[in-house]
Write a protein that binds this DNA or RNA. Sequence first.
DNA 1: GATCTGACCACCG
DNA 2: CCGGTGGCCAGAT
Length: 104
Amino acid sequence: MTAFSERVYDCVRRIPRGRIINYGSVAALVGEPRAARGVGYSLSHLPSGSDVPWWRVVNRRGAISTSRFTGLAQRQRAILESEGVEFNADGEASWERFGWDPHG
DNA sequence: GATCTGACCACCG
DNA sequence: CCGGTGGCCAGAT
């Protein structure tokens, strides 16, 4: 557990239900604008039983970027849809409607 | 300690 | 719009 990871988790925990954010924005919020990759890595190694809503983090296009081969992507999408997030034919969600801005 | 890998993104050209 | 490049973090070999 590093300081970077903790800041990432702390940021993700503040994302309200039914909202999404992208990896780059999380990185920027924790003070590392170019560490989007690090964010993805940290979330991929979340400790079991954590209260971090990792499923609310998607890629820049608003699409799910988790591995398609583990079935994780399908699960993530299902959870998001259960929270009210809608995806278009390309599997992208609207930032206008579901994007989370920490400012308000 | 060099190199590669992975749930990524911004910046050119 | 598409492709290449560099940048960031942490773990594995």
